[in-house]
């Protein structure tokens, strides 16, 4: 039985698939979030050096990871949309940007609130912090450029330019701590070496990352569905949707 891989690449069928997936991801996000926060605040021990301040890690690191991943995924989808002229790919890229921008802002904000007690300053023009700030501007640039162009298809192509050009910033952010070795500490978590963090701290952080992932997927799917409806409002299937009273 040949699987039709492209069945869900049509906005109509994707709309209903996403509709079924959103509750799953939302529940997973809530459950994992509660578990992660419980571990982070009640199970993980006090840090010998930073005391309780380090507990910001349970939101700072997931937000930072996600801000980078979401940009790469956004660049991939807008690249596919550009290359294959597939409307849905560009819609997903457009749907990712606001969530990516939110997590980038959150990474910068929580980092500043962590830096004040530990480094003694809210902000420093450190390689990691500066490249993350540039990432925020890239997200905002992507969103505002797309908003400035009326025709959605042309907005997709223009957005793809920023997304693809800006993706070079992601490895810069990731390796900035090694290349420039400025204030921000190096990568603590690595898939190869043995963990340098206490187990409960690491577990709490990884569960929080999963929770943020589930949340991001759920919100992006909801926004993609909204974009699909906005762009396909003249089609027959959206008309039928109205007949049945669009609750699904």
């Amino acid at each position: 039985m040949a699987i039709n891989w492209f069945k869900y690449s049509s906005p109509a069928s994707f709309y209903f698939l996403a509709g079924k997936m959103i509750p799953l991801f939302s529940i997973a996000a809530i459950v994992l979030g509660a578990a992660g926060l419980y571990i982070g605040f009640f199970v993980a021990p006090t840090d010998f050096q930073q005391g309780e301040a380090y507990r910001i890690i349970f939101i700072h690191v997931p937000a930072a990871w996600l801000s980078m991943f979401l940009y790469v995924i956004m660049a991939i989808w807008s690249g596919i949309g550009l290359a294959f002229n597939t409307r849905l790919s560009s819609m997903v890229a457009t749907a990712i940007a606001p969530t990516g921008a939110m997590f980038t802002f959150l990474a910068l904000w929580t980092g500043a609130l962590w830096g004040k007690p530990m480094w003694g300053t809210w902000w420093v023009w450190d390689a990691r912090l500066t490249s993350e700030l540039i990432l925020l501007f890239l997200y905002i640039g992507f969103m505002s450029l797309q908003a400035a162009i009326d025709d959605p298809r042309r907005a997709d192509k223009a957005g793809a330019m920023i997304a693809l050009v800006g993706v070079v910033n992601i490895p810069i952010i990731y390796f900035s701590v090694k290349w420039w070795n400025t204030l921000h500490q190096g990568a603590t978590v690595s898939l190869t070496q043995s963990p340098k963090m206490a187990t409960t701290m690491l577990t709490g952080m990884l569960i929080m990352s999963l929770a943020c992932w589930m949340y991001a997927i759920a919100v992006i799917l909801i926004r993609t569905r909204a974009i699909i409806l906005e762009r396909e409002r003249h089609t027959a299937w959206v008309g039928e949707l109205q007949l049945q009273g669009a609750t699904r």
């Binding site: 309780e52 969530t99 929580t110």
Partner: peptide, 21 residues
Amino acid sequence: GGYGLYVWGSYLVAIVCIAGE
């Protein structure tokens, strides 16, 4: 441990951002 402002300042803004979105 005296860092309440920073920890809760971070988590409050996180909740506001997520709920807002």
